[in-house]
Design a binder for these strands. Structure first.
Lengths: 339, 339
DNA sequence: ATAATTTGTGCAATCGATTGCAAAATCATT
DNA sequence: AATGATTTTGCAATCGATTGCACAAATTAT
């Protein structure tokens, strides 16, 4: 078994009969080092298999080159593709990414954020949980001037960069589409109002109805947590109404799928009896029968841009960059469930 | 704007008029510190908002409390759920998880592994890329005695822990199922032989055929990279044969879906004209019409166990633990596409 | 009361890289 | 050859926590 002791700059220095400072500078291409020495050192470094101790460097520079990410769940396609985007950009810039999931629980989120804070990440990219109605854990970061960037779901009380999609307009366009295809009684299964995204989608729905001079009926507005189970319950309530809707804008694809399954069990034609519209374009939406109309959110791009922005901010801490809200547009994908 | 200088053990020591060593020991519950001092220090630490500098501690202890993870792609459900399992366990043990994706490219994988190595992760959990036919980058770890754990796809030339599912048996059971339901001409769309998982699935298929005394026909065995595109091509070739198969065991759900779509376009009945079987139980498989028979792999559990094993090994570096291959069993999920 | 233990604290070195300042070496100029 | 300007290199402190060893204090035994 070979011994492989770690080589340090001191070893290099000793071998080359120069000082560790010179070695350090030569390796970092410091301009105060002569070309000759630089070459010499770098050659020796490779020869001896030197590998810089990032920990030591980080300790000194007080940077970790690490971005923390908190998402509700990793295994949801929208989030995993966003993470994929974050990763891809971060790695090109030599940043590491530590990922954690809140499982949509505030308490878990607080825990994750705290841990990332203690691990001294240089920045935080987060999409908040459904329960997040306080911001103390996030203020930790802003107070220490560590950049936070929200994507998709943000905390309105924290001043920071945000990358979101145009939920309002999406909700509006979905509802208009349902109106235009002839739906007369349009319901909406919404998510918790606490979250900007669900509030905006709902507001878009309301605006479209108002514009078309259609009444906003209380019974047609269900607020749920958008899980499969609650989706089924909400949709069941809707269809059991004396005058059930003939078009339902579901807050996400999961509930739309629940609705679809309900219809199949109860011999309701989609979109004949009731048209359905989802949100997020999950992988299953295109392949289910009938295929599900939905809204495509650019998850990967959101992640990629989020990483770009936050790293840019991290690398320019001295300059003051005003906070920015980036709104990406979505694409309505009209499939069989609302044709 | 408040100033929030970081508190160090030296600040605490100064305030308490004791030495930094004592503070350090008190905070770490070292047995050589009296109960009284311990209390005193811990109280003061909270009072002053002390937060340990993990970097400094890591530098000293040469541990990073970080596990590196490399997967082909994060946005595939199997992998994101495995990561979810890894995360969940790792966080309970105070470990961070750095994730990176190889995109199924050897060159990217080498890059990821190298970066994780340079970042001095304490262990590596990896599912290798489809192209990985060398192991130099992985030997880096074994040579330095940093634990590696493979899950699902492993590198046979590296001695280490592995967590896999029983691909051979799964392939065997799938094929038997197709035989039992009456298929006479069973084809298989396989993945690259380089990977254990695809070789095993194929071998299971071959064994089942042999056992049933059915001939192994060359044209019925397609080897692809299991992407949607190649899946369509392979399936098309199969169905254009003079004597096309009446049952196809697809290497994964993606190709099975391609097959399904081909059938729909070409008016072939599934499972009437041809029965289909996939692998992995992607989220879409249950909801597509007809629903897709497939094999459920316990992604979350694999990740969770992987994290357990590797952390256990990390925390017991002195004791010699023999390498172990854990084989989890799978569950055949028989749905409409093969009923 | 003194010696022998046990228990609690502190000193100082260490982990490995970075950097301000000073000293040395090189070069240019007269 | 001597002076000044410039380039190159080294010294030593620093980042913050940990730990072996030694010493001091408290406890027990004689």
């Amino acid at each position: 078994m070979k011994k492989h002791p770690e080589i340090t700059i001191h070893n290099l220095a000793y071998e080359l009969k120069i000082s560790a400072s010179t070695v350090s500078r030569a390796l970092n291409n410091n301009s105060r080092i002569s070309e000759k020495t630089r070459q010499l050192v770098q050659k020796k470094a490779i020869e001896m298999g030197y590998r810089p101790n990032i920990l030591a460097a980080n300790l000194r520079s007080k940077k970790t080159n690490t971005i923390g990410v908190v998402v509700p769940r990793i295994d949801r396609y929208f989030f995993s593709s966003a993470i994929s985007g974050i990763e891809d950009y971060a790695w090109t810039k030599g940043f590491n990414v530590i990922i954690s999931q809140s499982n949509d629980l505030l308490i878990k989120e607080i825990n994750c954020v705290q841990t990332l804070f203690n691990n001294r990440v240089d920045g935080l990219i987060i999409s908040i949980s459904m329960q997040t109605n306080e911001d103390k854990h996030l203020r930790l970061f802003s107070e220490k001037n560590i950049p936070i960037l929200f994507f998709d779901r943000f905390c309105p009380t924290i001043d920071s960069d945000r990358i979101v999609v145009d939920d309002f307009n999406s909700g509006y366009k979905i509802t208009r589409h349902l109106i235009e295809r002839g739906c007369k009684r349009i319901a909406h299964i919404a998510g918790p109002e606490l979250l900007n995204i669900y509030k905006d989608r709902k507001d878009g729905y309301i605006k479209a109805l108002a514009e078309a001079e259609m009444p906003l009926i209380d019974e047609y507005l269900e607020v749920t947590d958008l899980t499969k189970e609650e989706g089924i319950q909400a949709f069941t309530r809707l269809m059991k109404l004396p005058n059930p809707p003939d078009g339902v804008f579901c807050g996400n694809d999961t509930t739309a799928l629940s609705a679809l399954e309900y219809c199949q069990k109860n011999n309701l034609k989609v979109p004949g009896d009731v048209a359905l519209f989802g949100f997020s374009d999950e992988p299953f939406s295109a392949v289910v029968t009938p295929s599900l109309s939905t809204v495509k959110q650019p998850g990967y791009q959101m992640g990629f841009q989020a990483a770009q922005k936050i790293i840019h901010r991290i690398e320019n801490t001295k300059t003051i960059i005003p906070f920015e809200q980036t709104v990406l547009s979505t694409v309505l994908i009209i499939r069989d469930s609302s044709k």
